[in-house]
Design a protein around this nucleic acid. Structure first.
Lengths: 213, 213
DNA sequence: TGCAGTATCCATCAAACGGTGGAGGGTTTC
DNA sequence: GAAACCCTCCACCGTTTGATGGATACTGCA
């Protein structure tokens, strides 16, 4: 509204389910003169609704959220508002999560280990229409792209491997024969580059293909 | 120094390796009148050294830290200063981590999902010499106590199971026979209440006995 | 139409795993 | 010094897993 100001402040929505982190982030961002936190949300649905109501310039979003995960929330928000500028701010969470978030339309991917200056710089960059993905995040992404992607069925099987189910149990879970499960397990091992199901489970967790929750 | 004040502010050290979280926390705590952040640290050794230098009234410490983990850092700090009042502030990290932290002498165990009011209340309580452990944390702890504890050797074996090593590989890693490894694996399965090594791996991760890093 | 990819199933076989029970030597604890 | 506990090893046996090399069928795309 003010005519005197050179620039309007950048209006920000902060989404994080950890109260002290979120409130800390808000306190921190509000100390920067050209940034202004206009709303907060602590889970996926709330994020979607709050975005709809406030239409912030920039959304800072953690990926691990209750009810609806960050990547899905990004998808939903951008379905309604394709111009939404969303920056993922998380701790790491594996290449699969990075991939899904960027796939969903995130314009930036920052780590909580970054400095506040880098954060504000990234916010301004994305607000100006640029993208901001750190080099090593891009590397991780390239790494993932190199490897062949799991099919939906394989992912289904992998989830159950992580859940500690045997081939026989997985077979009855999915209403298929144990032979088929073995086929899937074999291609999973091949694609993940591991030699047994325990390794498959831990690398699936590490790469963020599956979560323990 | 001031004689006019009713109470001196509580001097706080904040330890967290995520810069934006830590700086946010500092910004947040400094908005509370009787709290004053006097120092920060971003890893274990730094925490120990910074504590030595500033002797804060309260230390807020995350558990996942580079170089030296939070629990070990607490141990080391309290060796030098048995009266140190340390509050763990973390995201969760499983019952084993809770146990080790309290064992090491932490006076409080708070989650980052808590409200800022609860946090400040806990800080004042611990500063007043009390302990502050939320109910469900105590529950988790009780749960853990119920189950039989793993021996050091079993933990060693479990780490390698999580790393995806076979019994034969674990045997040569530890310079023991495969038969011995099988014995250990068997008691691990029994103690964890699971039926195979993949389940052992995932519940070990879930309970915080082992970490993927 | 034909090809690539996915999902389903089969048989076979060796290797790895898990269950059971027992045994000896070493601590720590009472 | 007995009891309790841990670590080490052994043998036996059935089950599970992973590796290999197929086969059929449905999809979508070129």
């Amino acid at each position: 509204m003010s005519e005197k100001q050179m620039t309007e402040p950048i209006r920000i929505l902060v989404v994080d389910d950890h109260n002290v982190v979120r409130q800390g982030l808000v306190a921190l961002l509000n100390t920067v003169s050209d940034l202004q936190v206009v709303a907060e949300a602590s889970d996926g649905p709330e994020a979607i609704e709050t975005f709809r109501k406030h239409k912030p310039d920039i959304t800072l979003m953690d990926l691990r959220l209750p009810k609806i995960g960050g990547a899905d929330a990004i998808t939903r928000i951008r379905e309604e508002s394709p111009s939404a500028r969303i920056i993922v701010l998380t701790t790491f969470d594996g290449d699969e999560d990075i991939f899904r978030a960027l796939q969903a339309g995130a314009k930036g991917y920052l780590l909580k280990g970054m400095d506040i200056d880098e954060l504000t710089e990234a916010i301004r960059a994305v607000h100006a229409g640029k993208s901001k993905i750190p080099g090593f995040v891009a590397e991780k992404l390239a790494e993932r792209m190199g490897g062949p992607a799991l099919t939906t069925r394989e992912t289904e099987v992998l989830k159950r491997i992580v859940a500690g189910r045997s081939n026989k149990e997985i077979a009855s879970d999915l209403f298929i024969s144990e032979a088929t499960v073995k086929t899937h397990v074999n291609s999973i091992l091949g694609k993940l580059g591991v030699t047994d199901r325990t390794q498959a489970a831990t690398t699936a967790l590490q790469r963020g293909i599956v979560h323990l929750d």
